[in-house]
C-alpha cells in the first residue's frame, strides 16, 4: 500500500514498522536528510551511528520507519534521533529529540507521529518524564508538528551571538 492510499487523518502505523536503525539504513538516512535539508552530511551520520548504535547506550535512540511493503518507494519513510542529557544548562535529565525527518512524499500519514511516539515511549521506559527539542523559529511546519504532538514552549530560551 502506498502512502497516497492512506487516510491523512487516521493515525495508522500498520503499513510501516518503527525499528532501530541498522548500518544498511545509513545511505537512506543520509539521502533523506540531504533531500530535506539540502545538505549531504555523511560524516555526521556516520558519527551518530557510531555513538548511538555501535557503542551501545541505553539512553540514546536512533529509530527508523520502514515501509512494510517492499513495493513501497521509498522503503525508508523517516527517522528520529534522540538521547537523554542530564544537567546541561542546569536541567534535570530529560530526553532530547535532536533530529526527526519524514520523506516529503510520505507526510500526513502518521509516520512522524509514530516516530515521535516511539521515541517518547523509549524515554518513558527509562524513567524520563520530560522531552525537549529545538526548532528553527522560521520552520513553522516542523514547529507545528511538534506542537500537534503536545509540545509547548519550555522554561529555557536559546540565546546566541555572532562571533568575529
Amino acid at each position: 500500500m502506498t502512502p497516497s492510499q492512506h487516510s491523512d487523518t487516521t493515525p495508522d502505523g500498520d503499513w510501516f514498522t518503527i525499528r532501530q536503525v541498522t548500518h544498511a539504513d545509513l545511505p537512506d538516512v543520509v539521502n533523506l536528510d540531504a533531500r530535506v535539508t539540502g545538505m549531504q552530511k555523511q560524516d555526521y551520520w556516520d558519527d551518530i551511528y557510531v555513538r548511538f548504535v555501535e557503542r551501545g547506550n541505553d539512553k540514546r535512540f536512533f529509530l527508523v520507519a520502514q515501509a512494510n511493503d517492499a513495493a513501497d518507494n521509498p522503503a525508508l519513510l523517516g527517522f528520529v534521533v534522540g538521547e537523554v542529557r542530564a544537567w546541561e544548562f542546569g536541567s534535570a535529565p530529560c530526553g532530547w529529540i535532536t533530529g526527526i525527518s519524514v520523506d516529503p512524499d510520505s507526510r500526513l500519514h502518521a509516520v512522524g507521529e509514530c516516530l515521535f511516539r516511539s521515541i517518547s515511549e523509549k524515554f518513558e521506559a527509562i524513567g524520563i518524564t520530560t522531552m525537549r527539542t529545538m526548532v528553527g523559529r522560521s520552520n513553522h511546519l516542523l514547529m507545528a508538528f511538534f506542537r500537534s504532538e503536545g509540545m509547548m514552549a519550555g522554561p529555557y530560551l536559546q540565546l546566541e551571538k555572532e562571533l568575529g
Binding site: 523559529r137 522560521s138 513553522h140 514547529m143 507545528a144 511538534f146 506542537r147 500537534s148 503536545g150 514552549a153
Partner: peptide
C-alpha cells in the same frame, strides 16, 4: 514580534482542539 509570529504560525486549529482536550 518574531517569537509571537512563530508561536501563532505553528499552532493549528487541530492543535488547539488537542490542547483543549488535554
Amino acid at each position: 514580534d518574531d517569537i509571537a509570529r512563530a508561536t501563532l504560525g505553528s499552532i493549528t486549529i487541530a492543535t488547539m482542539l488537542k490542547l483543549m482536550d488535554r
